[in-house]
Design a protein around this nucleic acid. Sequence first.
DNA 1: TTAGCTGCAAAAGGTTTGCAAATTA
DNA 2: TAATTTGCAAACCTTTTGCAGCTAA
Lengths: 151, 151
Amino acid sequence: MSDPAADDRLGEILELLRADGGRVTSARRAVVASLMASDGHVSAESIAAEVQGAMPDVSVSTVYRTLEVLERLGQVEHVHLGHGPSLYHLADRRHVHLLCRRCDRVIELPDTYLADLADRLADDHGFVLEPRHFALLGTCAECAARADQAG
Amino acid sequence: MSDPAADDRLGEILELLRADGGRVTSARRAVVASLMASDGHVSAESIAAEVQGAMPDVSVSTVYRTLEVLERLGQVEHVHLGHGPSLYHLADRRHVHLLCRRCDRVIELPDTYLADLADRLADDHGFVLEPRHFALLGTCAECAARADQAG
DNA sequence: TTAGCTGCAAAAGGTTTGCAAATTA
DNA sequence: TAATTTGCAAACCTTTTGCAGCTAA
């Protein structure tokens, strides 16, 4: 359960927090640990739930505030799904998100997947795309097949 | 103010509503008229505000319910911006949306713009993209230039 | 000591829902 | 008449905020 590399990474992030004039608290440590333990995309609500497993009175607002700071420090990013809550992940987990509207499954693609599109938008419109800040909505292969069968 | 082509289109949509077993009410007529008069992407809130100009006690919930029916009938689509409310538009106004996170401007592109991406997703992952259901987030040319100048 | 964080409760959007009254066909 | 729609108010869900007390440095 104690992974030295993960501990380093955690310490690194907490150090950035200190360097920014912030405090390292047990709630913040727990939020970062939860992000590191997660599969890479979790809602603020679910982070709160996990943290509260060990520290029952950490409130959701603390989680949101912690995520906000970490995002400002470039350590966390969030993705907007169409409906439903935003998903948060560590900034070193860079990927594009596909969201299936039928089964709510999230599929991750390498963040280079939208490079061509980003180039085209820059050339055509001077628009600087943030390819990880929104999910691509549609229907996943399984659900599409199921829908096909159903007629 | 009275455009025969627009009147036809309005009538067409209302007829679909009837054909589906629904009723045509003044509130519904006004919602459709508002959508037709709009620039192509409006929030439920702003539709309600416009409708209420002439009919003060049409409620927002009626607007949402009307949009829902029209969406089911394939006459309306909505786009999720990252933050902020969803935007609704008539289904014949097909376009991809770019949203500038700095100035909230919405830029419309032909809905073919994501055709390559859609093909690639289908080939690589069997994923059926809905290219108009989400906005591409980033920074528009003007805001990017301004940010550049600022340092 | 003191800036910064926290929990709590309340508020702020955006959207949905329950229900009795009104309206359409 | 019978089924559908409406307005209203209340609830919902996610996120933000105000504030007095607590805590890290």
